[in-house]
Every structure is written in C-alpha cells, then in structure tokens.
C-alpha cells in the first residue's frame, strides 16, 4: 500500500477514532491527545507492517486496526495516569470469569415506544457506565461490529464481549425502567423487568 492510500484510509476513519476516544476519555482535549497518539503510532514503521499483515490475512481492515490502537493508547494512558484503583488486567480477569447475567431483557405491554423522549436520560446512563462497558457499547451500537470483531479489537474472548454487553444493556435498561417518568415516556406499563417468563401481568 502506498503512502497516500494509507493516509487516505487512515483519515477516512478519523471521526470514528475520535468518537471512540471521546467516549472513552469523556474529555475533548484528552480525546484529541489520544487521537494524535493513535495516528502517530499508526505511522510507525512496525505498525504499518502490522497493519499490512493484518489486512493480508483478512482479519481486519483499517477501521478495526485503528480501533485496536485507540483501545491500547487509552488503556496505556489509564495505567500511566493511575486514574483507576483497580488494574485493568485485574478487571478484565474478573469480567472474564464472571457468568453471564441471567436477567432477561425487560418486557412491556406492546405499547409504542418513544425512545427519543428518553435520549437524554439514556445518554446520562451511558456516561455513568464503566469505560469497558461504554467501549463495547459503542463498538456494538454505533459502529455495528459483530461480537467477534469487537473481541479481536479489545483482545478479549468473545464471551467477555457478550458479558460486557449484557451487563451494559442491563444497567441501561434498569436505569431507564427504574425511573417512572422514563417508563411513562417510553410508553411502558405493567412491565416486570425481573421476571424470566415474559413478565406480563
């Protein structure tokens, strides 16, 4: 791949890389720093060779490759800044071994949803999620990646991706459905989120 093509491809995904960096850092300035580090790393000779290898064996394109670098840059910074009392590796190990949550998605009475009325509350709930949950939610919900692709980007087993997604979704659903105004705005009624048998009265 020649230089111009490489740059064109890399810059084509700048919005997606910035979006991921912003959702991880929740700070525009830090997000820009992350993005610049991502592109600096992406242009290292060894990194370019790594991308060419990865592309040639069909395991990922430029976007996934840049997401992988973004993930690595962010968590390197997390470790360096010691912002988290718990080591990332320890958290991953914990998440990997935890069973999938058994709570089913909430049921409702079939009334029409009105999600747009709760977008603000959903946004707030997403911002409260742990970085790991928000990251997987972004790759799944916004970037439309499959579980396997997300697992490859994050360097974790596919079961871990599923576990994080389930937990993230449950937290969001619980957060939304625990609020009576949200339930009303969504058009829900008589739901029973904790029941596994349909939950309808």
């Amino acid at each position: 791949m020649d230089r111009q093509e490489f740059e064109r491809l890399a810059l084509e995904h700048l919005d997606a890389v910035y979006r991921m960096a912003l959702h991880l850092t929740r700070n525009p300035e830090q997000a820009e720093d992350v993005v610049q580090d991502v592109y600096a790393r992406a242009l290292r000779p060894r990194a370019v060779a790594s991308f060419e290898d990865r592309s040639s064996d069909g395991t990922g394109g430029m976007r996934s490759w840049l997401f992988t670098i973004t993930h690595n840059v962010f968590y390197s910074k997390v470790k360096k800044d010691k912002r988290r009392p718990q080591a990332v590796g320890e958290f991953f190990a914990e998440a990997d071994s935890a069973p999938l949550p058994d709570e089913p998605p909430p049921a409702w009475d079939g009334a029409a949803f009105d999600w747009e009325h709760v977008d603000g509350r959903l946004k707030s709930a997403i911002e409260d999620l742990k970085d790991e949950f928000r990251e997987v939610l972004l790759l799944w919900g916004v970037e439309g990646l499959k579980y396997r692709e997300i697992a490859e980007i994050l360097g974790v087993p596919i079961g871990t991706v599923m576990s994080r997604l389930h937990r993230a979704r449950k937290i969001l659903a619980d957060g939304l459905l625990g609020d009576t105004d949200t339930v009303r705005d969504l058009g829900l009624s008589r739901f029973d989120a904790s029941s596994g048998n349909g939950g309808m009265e």
């Binding site: 700048l14 979006r19 998605p105 049921a107 949803f113 959903l122 916004v142 979704r169 969001l172």
Partner: peptide, 21 residues
C-alpha cells in the same frame, strides 16, 4: 423483549453516534 433490545441498540447508536472530529 427482543424488540426492546433492538430498539435499545438503535437508541444507543443515536445517542452515542453523532460525533465528528
């Protein structure tokens, strides 16, 4: 329940998606 999950995914995309560098 499945439909709820699909709509939750769409809502996440709508809330998290519109960000440009």
């Amino acid at each position: 329940r499945i439909e709820f999950e699909r709509q939750l995914k769409e809502a996440c995309g709508r809330v998290m998606g519109p960000i440009s560098a």
